[in-house]
Design a protein around this nucleic acid. Sequence first.
DNA 1: TATCGAGCGTACCGTACGGTACGGTACTGG
DNA 2: CCAGTACCGTACCGTACGGTACGCTCGATA
Lengths: 210, 210
Amino acid sequence: MEAGAAAPEPPSVRQQAVLDAVLALMVEGGDQLTMDAVARRASCSKETLYKWYGDRDGLLTATVRWQASRVHAGREAVQTLDGTTLREHLQDFAVSWLTVITSRTSVALNRIAVAHAGSRKSNLGGIVLANGRFAIGERVKPVLEAGRAAGLLAFADSESAFRTFFGLVGRDIQIRLLLGEALDLDADEIRRDADRAVDQFLALYGQANT
Amino acid sequence: MEAGAAAPEPPSVRQQAVLDAVLALMVEGGDQLTMDAVARRASCSKETLYKWYGDRDGLLTATVRWQASRVHAGREAVQTLDGTTLREHLQDFAVSWLTVITSRTSVALNRIAVAHAGSRKSNLGGIVLANGRFAIGERVKPVLEAGRAAGLLAFADSESAFRTFFGLVGRDIQIRLLLGEALDLDADEIRRDADRAVDQFLALYGQANT
DNA sequence: TATCGAGCGTACCGTACGGTACGGTACTGG
DNA sequence: CCAGTACCGTACCGTACGGTACGCTCGATA
């Protein structure tokens, strides 16, 4: 998947404030995301907005990238891997993924990106995919492969195994949220959900010694 | 989930043609879905559109319901259920669900509904959920329960079991499509995917005699 | 044949919003 | 103290689109 032209330069503090204003407006309801509203909320002039971001799409793109840059956790290398640490890693991934996709910000952002994917031009959808679904895939797959190398997991294709993991974790959550269902999970429910998903994944792909 | 006021009366043939025009325009790109474009495409006057559907939202709502009315397959009763027929039933569900969510029409419609869910008012999202995710849930759960009654499956909560099935079938397909990835599956891939999902589901919930 | 309603096509209105222009202000460097 | 820069606030422009009004045709009914 093409992420669509690398980010040019990191936003200044003032620019970050503007992008946060955009995020806030997104969360408050997708339809009030006008350039006027952004300028008012961020206490800046529209002219500045256009100077910094070119046009509305540029502003949206910068916002998506800004949010993505905050979500990325560092990818720590996996060295020792026994049944317990593998399980912990997977649980961490599941919890953080569920936390992300159930957050108001993510829901709002994904709504914008999905809507944008309908009308071509400037693919926010691609950026969101690259920084969401694909980014976590690239982080999980090494763990799965390390698990296989340690004899803890068995699968032929790590991509396919990851997709199953993804499905077991997310189930119907994301589409229900995107379509407007209330359904807010607290940290406990997320943890239980993650536990269940990891249990099921290990039941499918785990070797005896887990 | 509230479906949002039952459908008033079935559309006339002429009205169906109008709604099909709306669907066609949705598929061609979400942004050209203007009342003018619909009137032109359907060879009718805007005044008629407003007379029949009240306003733009009414037209969209009618379109979503119209599409939903076409997707609903009859729910046949489940009587005899052995391991083979259970598997067949689940495979049928998986195939038809994958076929639906990968169809251009469904993607376009879901995009509209998701976008609409951002700005409150007239929840298309609720209607889509009710006729998609929840409708299939209500059709699958009786089968799961029959499978449990026949000693073929083991689970405590059929809703939860269904959600796992849903996740195993859909995985990341829907979100990737909604976010604009190309990814078109042909009938063969769908069938293989459905097979895999059913295998995995039975591995998790099946009793020995499957 | 006269009347009537349904509906097509087109013209029109109001407004919201993307984008631009411009005056005013504060800070920076010489 | 002056020039330059960056930016705020506001006014402005053009257009696209939701919604309305109106004249016309056509088929049905008496």
